[in-house]
Design a protein around this nucleic acid. Sequence first.
RNA 1: GCGGGUGUGGUAUAACGGUCAUUACUCCAGUUUUCCAAACUGGCUACGGGAGUUCGACUCUCCCCACCCGCACCA
Length: 450
Amino acid sequence: MSEITLEDIASLAKRRGFIYQGSEIYGGLAGTWDYGPLGVALKRNITNAWWKFFVESRDDMYGIDSAILMSPKVWEASGHVAGFTDPLIEDVKTKKRFRLDHLLEDAGVDIKGMNLEQMVASLKEKGIKSPDGNDLANPANFNLLFETAIGSVEGGGSKVYLRGETAQGMFVNFKNIVDSFYPDIPFGVAQIGKAFRNEISPRDFVFRVREFEIAEFEYFINPTHWEAEFEKWRVAMHDWCELLGLPADKIHELEVPAEDRAHYSKRTIDFEFDFPHGKKELYGLAYRTDFDLINHQTASGKSMEYRPKDGSTPFIPHVIEPTFGVDRTLLAVLAAAYTEDEVGGEKRTYLKLPKDLAPVKAAVSPLLKNKPELVSKAREVYDTLKKELGAVMWDDNGNIGKRYRRQDEIGTPACITIDFQTLEDNTVTVRNRDTAEQTRVAIDSLLHNL
RNA sequence: GCGGGUGUGGUAUAACGGUCAUUACUCCAGUUUUCCAAACUGGCUACGGGAGUUCGACUCUCCCCACCCGCACCA
């Protein structure tokens, strides 16, 4: 049994209708992927489980769905317009690009408030060369925010950005939530939605893409006990991983050192997962302090203070932010579920998905498709289950073994087969995906059994 | 963005400057089949896109696009 690769997963995902290359018939568009029928089902099951786990099952969490287009002032206040930009400069010989700001900082230059021109001037003044020892040229800013324009007149209109993260939608609605519900602190605001980043090089299937889905929440706290809140969510994130069926020994916490942290963060933990292409970031947990609320208070002129009901001193809440990349979650789930073993001496591939996540909950088949009495009985069972479970598939392709293998590959936990005994005593066989074992179950207790 | 590699049906592949582009699996229709990709018959589907060279290009050249590996980036 060889190591599984990203390509194994991408190939199965395409073949079975989970994930397709974006705009494929036109040669594709880099960094975009389309979810097919099974992919969207799997993704929904994941986001629904997330919503249930972090929002619905709690009484301190408020869900929202904010607009993708937001006032440009939001991104100026958040620091994304300035801070989401990387000034890069090119080695004239090797053509490698380096961070201009990093080169200056390494040379002891204080770059605060410098624009690109000033940085280049400072670089020349100091005679800084590239790490490879050559001259540097062609400085350029790379901003990760996608831009578009409001207004249908070409060239006219005003510039707006596609949101680079969903977090700001939560911060700008902080006041609204407080006004509508006046929750006790601590409380959280949660959202699942698309975000966009103009990545220089999208990579590794759906791992790094230009359009992606994020599930995250901002948990507003009193800063005096931020460590305890941070710890609470750290543990909850592991519980979530377990719920997804991700093996605990494939999850690694990385304490992000101060110099690598985002400017606003006092503490960050990356949750890394052993993906087929290596140990990579899956989730993040950050203590964002009061950075965002203060920025928005300053920029908007609206108070972001929270007045405790007990009359104690008002304060601007601090924020703990757990972030979950949905596409990365789906990739991790697929990678963890992808299993090869042998049944009856034949190799088989199957997705060992948790029942709740499986895109198809059960497949129904007549043992033989040329026996009308079996087919009509199977149809009956199918119709009943379909009504109750929804995600049930009818499968009468080829022979029974072939159907089992087919369902294995998409992770269907149970295959229900109607045979001649069914006609006599109203029982069916239920075949288990993981063990390939079959049990006889009365039709009446099928629902309960699944 | 830089460097290297790759691009042939849904998947995995073969060949060739010159008839209708090979094979397997999948898929579809049918025969058959009393539980793990059986067999038989038939069928759909491909040279990533665009220019150029040539009498003729999937094959050679250039440009573009996408994917993979390395670097860089990853608030």
